[in-house]
Design a protein around this nucleic acid. Structure first.
Length: 325
DNA sequence: AAACGCCGCAACCGCCGAGGT
DNA sequence: AACCTCGGCGGTTGCGGCGTT
């Protein structure tokens, strides 16, 4: 049985709301409350359907609506929540007081989604796009923009997604004969986080001291690719059979590229990004692992630059990386 | 200055689930 | 159980503003 329209649409006005209509709606709701949206237009003297009134009120006229640019913290929150909730805009909006689902949806589609795509991150899975992951460009970008190479963050956040990247990083460090202290320092940090992982590669590199979950994911992931009979997806989206793997891998690092180190001793994450998201009360949104501040007047390019920090890592000045570029 | 194209956002559309009868 | 209404949600559209040519 076909559904009856929410109201008789004959003679009802559509399109942009006028200030007079807005005032009428505001005055009515302030005096009587929304009540039954279906009957509201008639009672308020508006030539609109109830649905239009409700949308106008909830998305624009509500007094607690926050207008203006999204802050960096809000943007981080949206990205993290989207990675968990998907396109559940209302659920995301519930954690961003003053923001509507429509506004968040628009902001995602017009800003965040495009930025993620530019960065080679699939906005659906939040994993690097396998077909576009260009190692040299990532490295070039990072090396040009930053003189810092945070090896552990780099490897944990990115190498686990791509065995080639892992190999490249290994080679990178192997070139670092002139600065063994840095290698030692990084490895000590890694070892401190995973003391039980045994060495599998060369003694000087000891890359297997990285987390076993990473290794397992890489192997598992490679296996999936083999099973699919494809080694390089042509599609933007990740094949559905890979989605779970990718999400699992993505969960190893938060969206700022900060690795979520799994402590195999007690099986807890040292970076509780998602947990903090999920446990955040509705009334008190938190910056979600952000120590940075974002000025509203920043440009999109500045935001891109900020996001380039996702690939930030430290690199010693003595390390010649030109061979890779 | 005009034409054109792109982009952002408000608003609309259609579907769905919950709840009432 | 079947039907109906309503509110809510996500996807899509279309208009206006802005930049470029």
């Amino acid at each position: 049985m076909g559904r009856a329209p929410c109201c008789d649409k004959k003679g009802l006005k559509k399109g942009p709301w006028t200030p007079e209509e807005d005032l009428q709606l505001i005055n009515y709701i302030q005096a009587h409350g929304p009540g039954n949206w279906r009957n509201l237009p008639e009672n308020a003297g508006l030539q609109r359907c109830g649905k239009s009134c409700r949308l106008r009120w909830t998305n624009y006229l509500r007094p607690d609506i926050k207008r203006g640019r999204f802050s960096f913290e809000e943007e981080e929150t949206i990205i993290q929540l989207h990675s968990v909730l998907g396109n559940k805009w209302s659920a995301i909006a519930a954690r961003l007081p003053g923001r509507t689902d429509n506004e968040i949806k628009n902001y995602w589609n017009t800003h965040i989604r495009k930025r993620l795509l530019r960065m080679g991150i699939d906005p659906v899975t939040h994993a690097p796009r396998l077909d576009l992951l260009d190692i040299s460009s990532i490295l070039r970008s990072a090396f040009c923009n930053q003189s810092l190479l945070n090896l552990q963050g780099f490897l944990s956040a990115q190498a686990l997604m791509n065995p080639e990247l892992l190999k490249l990083a290994t080679t990178l460090l192997s070139l670092n004969n002139e600065n063994p202290d840095l290698v030692s320092q990084n490895l000590q940090q890694i070892q401190a986080m995973n003391p039980q992982v045994q060495s599998q590669v060369t003694p000087q590199m000891q890359f297997s001291q990285f987390q076993m979950p990473i290794q397992n994911n890489v192997e598992h992931f490679s296996g999936d690719l083999k099973n699919m009979g494809c080694s390089n997806s042509q599609e933007n989206s990740v094949p559905s059979c890979l989605a779970e793997n990718l999400m699992a891998q993505a969960s190893q690092a938060d969206l700022l590229g900060n690795p979520i180190f799994v402590d195999s001793r007690n099986n807890t994450n040292q970076n509780l990004g998602y947990d903090s998201v999920l446990s955040t009360p509705l009334s008190s949104p938190t910056p979600l692992n952000s120590s940075s501040t974002y000025v509203n007047s920043s440009t999109e390019e500045e935001k891109d630059s900020s996001c380039s920090d996702w690939f930030k890592f430290e690199i010693p000045e003595s390390l010649d990386i030109s061979d890779f570029l």
